[in-house]
Design a protein around this nucleic acid. Structure first.
Lengths: 406, 406
DNA sequence: TAGCCTAATTTTAAGTCGCAAACTAACTTG
DNA sequence: CAAGTTAGTTTGCGACTTAAAATTAGGCTA
């Protein structure tokens, strides 16, 4: 409630964070360049980077000639400073991946688990974590990001609501703790972590206002406003898939009707195709191959082509709603179905977006396909502890108190 | 581009801003209480408030006993420190209103002007301004907020796109300057200023994530995220009225079809009613009385009742989209038509909202009617220079440089 | 009315911070 | 190897917030 005061020490933390983040995202830089980018004086840069180097967060990385003067010493974030783990909790199993601070994958394990009992999942996460972390000193693991397919209520401990898993108010964070994990945990919605991955390493790089629209079995979006993923009051913002696009239209699994997901989600697409063909029982082996073969079929089948074109229309209108409401500078279309559709029907989607957007916001935005596949969910999750590190400028495990330089 | 560095002076500015804002919004407070709320030490509070008092921004306002000790001296923002002007540019005329810093209206003028030629509007604003400001010393006017019914492209000078006025890329700010106004100008979309008014003085008070949904002839929304009106890349965010709610539905004046505005905007409601009755030519004297009499008619006419109930349904679905996307803690329904509908069909709107929202975000939000009428647009505009004052902690006319205490 | 008590402000004495200016370091050139 | 350049450090200072000590300002008591 009290608008946190600002003390003189916050200055240092903030500048530390700024420099560290600049180094992280813009690769090796000299102190000089760092000063230019951050606006800080050379003296301060020198001072702060000195601390960062002393703490082991930053290391020197060769040097570069500077025509006719002292060569610049390049600095970069020390990839070996620590490790982070990303966990992707999916509907059929979980993936656990270990990265260093350079976001290089060092290890990964995958476990299937159909009956998604929360306790088993928590235990599976704990054991996967133990497996993956085995190769590195325990003390170097800075935190664990956990992506779940549902909304996450952030609070003293994260609570998960995931309809597709049948979870309603599952205290996942506590459960993982009970399974014996003592590391900092960051539980977040999978669409948001994937969006974060696109922002850091994919099609969203460099932009500050982005909407990452994800279409797969489910439909969701990660809204990035001013560089940060927007969460809303209880961090369930961005539920694009269940916005109404056809009032009174197709029933949706969420219980409502006319949701975007009921039209452009994989199940919705396939079901619409079945109905268009008149047949009712062609259970595709799985959704992903079902959509693939539908796209194949469009080459020869008019019905298939029409269904997909309609899909592009709905999708464009859905994207246009995001354009009108958020006025982003960039839209990134991702998710496996989104990428598949985007590859074959990009123009049509763009056209539909244009025709349903107001001219002005439409002209300010560009539409791009995501550069990362659905695998990005785990990397995105792993960025959460890294983001905490960059944000605080220090090991997120340390309590935020007097640094007390020894 | 460079992530603005933080210097030790920013600290002071920020703390000054915090204290000033706290005083502005939370009424007279003692230095003690101020320290408690801001987290600042008593010493700093004393120091900063001393400056504020010296600058005339804050004045003492009586004192309060404190059981058995030195009584607390109350401080409050000095309403007489300066004046601000709010301008409401409407489709048929403009309103210019003068306020003191306590937001008490001191003067107001209204001019009609049907042919909305931008140059005449600019001149009308300039002359209205002169009229209204006549009673106070010129040097006390801190700035002028100007609300327009269209999107505003913020930049070195604001550009206005207002379809209903036939404006497309009108450099209104420059034009007003050319008309001889030298004061700081803040041009903003009218929905956003009205939203700001509800946030400061109306149904949005105290909340940080709010969507103010405005339904009148047009339909728009002001989205407040973390206490500030969200603007997007080029500040045209929040165009709720032109989001698609019925894919392939009624044509909208924006050129698209199925927009929310085509269903719940006044014109849309009345037109749907005409069609439902089969008659085509009952040109209501004006939209506002048309909607009023439609609501009257609903008591006896089944058709009228049905149209309004359907309207409540569409509106609820539209609100649900905002709930799903933004996860606000509060929804404020306003605008003249929104208030009229809300008064008679509140339950139905809420029901429709619930049935189209995901359960979790719906449960986190509350829906309330706006407390301010459409008159609030001008007050909202007037808050813009005040916001600049609170934000900077100093007269917004002064360049932001060394304070150099004399 | 003098003296005591309590609680609100102000002063005072550190301890931090970023900055400009003055230096030092490390090369290139002629 | 002296002069010229560019990178990075050190030094001294002004600006800040804070904790602690000192100073009000009423209310009460004797």
């Amino acid at each position: 409630m009290p608008p946190k005061r600002t003390t003189v020490r916050d200055l240092r933390r903030q500048n530390r964070s700024t420099l560290l983040s600049t180094l992280f995202f813009d690769g090796p830089l000299s102190r000089h360049e760092l000063g230019a980018r951050s606006g800080l004086s050379a003296a301060t840069v020198s001072n702060v980077t000195g601390e960062l180097v002393e703490d082991g967060l930053v290391v020197e990385a060769g040097s570069v000639d500077s025509d006719g003067g002292r060569p610049r010493v390049l600095l970069r974030v020390n990839p070996a400073y620590g490790h982070v783990v990303g966990v992707d909790v999916g509907e059929t199993g979980i993936k656990v991946e270990l990265f260093d601070l350079g976001m290089t994958q060092l290890a990964a394990v995958e476990h299937n688990l159909s009956p998604a009992d929360p306790v088993s999942v928590a235990e599976l996460i704990a054991s996967g974590l133990a497996e993956v972390v085995a190769g590195v000193p325990a003390s170097t693991v800075l935190g664990v990001g956990i992506a779940v397919p549902g909304t996450v209520e952030q609070g003293p401990a994260a609570i998960v609501h995931a309809q597709t898993l049948g979870w309603d108010g599952v205290p996942l964070e506590e459960m993982i703790r009970s399974a014996g994990v003592a590391l900092p945990l960051y539980v977040e919605n999978g669409a948001k972590t994937q969006g974060q991955a696109e922002m850091w390493f994919g099609a969203g790089r460099g932009a500050r206002h982005v909407v990452v629209a994800l279409v797969g079995s489910g439909v969701g979006a990660a809204v990035v406003t001013d560089g940060a993923v927007y969460r809303g009051t209880t961090s369930s913002a961005g539920e694009w898939g269940h916005t109404t696009i056809v009032y009174g239209g197709r029933p949706c699994r969420c219980g409502s009707s006319g949701c975007l997901e009921a039209y452009v989600g994989a199940e919705g697409i396939l079901d619409r195709y079945q109905r268009a063909r008149g047949s009712r029982h062609t259970p595709a082996s799985d959704e992903q191959s079902g959509v693939d073969s539908l796209i194949q079929a469009a080459a020869t089948s008019k019905t298939a082509a029409r269904v997909l074109e309609e899909t592009a229309g709905y999708l464009g209108a859905g994207i246009a709603n995001l354009v009108n409401l958020f006025n982003p500078e960039r839209i990134v279309l991702g998710g496996w179905a989104g990428l598949a559709l985007g590859e074959h029907y990009f123009d049509r989607i763009v056209t539909a977006t244009r025709s349903h957007s107001l001219r002005h916001p439409y002209e300010q935005t560009s539409i791009a396909l995501g550069q990362l596949g659905p695998d990005a969910v785990a990397v995105g999750a792993a960025t959460l502890p890294v983001a905490a590190l960059l944000d605080r400028g220090t090991d997120p495990r340390k309590p935020l108190s007097h640094p007390h330089i020894a």
